[in-house]
Design a protein around this nucleic acid. Sequence first.
DNA 1: CTCACGTTTCAGTGATTATTGAAATATTCC
DNA 2: GGAATATTTCAATAATCACTGAAACGTGAG
Lengths: 117, 117
Amino acid sequence: MKNDDAVSALAALAQDSRLDIFRLLVKAGPEGMPAGAVTAAVGLTPSALTFHFDRLRDAGLVTVRREGRSMIYAARFEIMNALLGFLTENCCQGGTDQCAPATCAPSKTIRRKERVS
Amino acid sequence: MKNDDAVSALAALAQDSRLDIFRLLVKAGPEGMPAGAVTAAVGLTPSALTFHFDRLRDAGLVTVRREGRSMIYAARFEIMNALLGFLTENCCQGGTDQCAPATCAPSKTIRRKERVS
DNA sequence: CTCACGTTTCAGTGATTATTGAAATATTCC
DNA sequence: GGAATATTTCAATAATCACTGAAACGTGAG
């Protein structure tokens, strides 16, 4: 992942509603979910949603496909993964073990106290 | 790390010059480096630099201290770490192993030629 | 004290962002 | 075909952003 790609991915996630939207899509898994369901969940107008989806899509973080009259959006985990890789590399070049590897696999095993939603 | 903190950290890094600046500070290590050195490296005016430093500082990603007439900026690795943790958690909740843990520990093995001091 | 240095503060500017509401588009059902 | 549903497109608007240049501030040197 190049510098520019990282910047657009970061920019795509650097907004309240958009981060919410992406988290929803991550929870929805590779199948994705229809735009309407996201609209209902985050409480924005449909056109505002389209605006945010476009930005996420430009950054490569989501895909979209039509299914009947619905548009199904889905997270692209590979890109999110690439972003994490980029950040980890750029965070850890100090060489002084500042970034513990433990930080990066808390999803299933370790449960932190900072569970906020 | 809360949702809002993540958004400001992401926003702080979601900009070309600022990402460059932060990477420089990461390379500089916990000691940090004076604002002037950063100015010279990224080619912006001093006031533009102050603008970006402020944003990074608001997000908690850097600290600053005075040393003589210089202001020494340094990356806060703990915050970057917290951001990575937040993103990893929010990327991996799909439960389907989409985010391999392998992505997260490339720091020590690979050494680049970009040794600058 | 005065000067030079390194950096910040401030006012101003053009570009981008998030949002709204109305109209247009695509699809299914009757 | 016509109505209903799901979503996008478009124009407009207020807020925020990145940047510039001039002035101010704090610090050390002579």
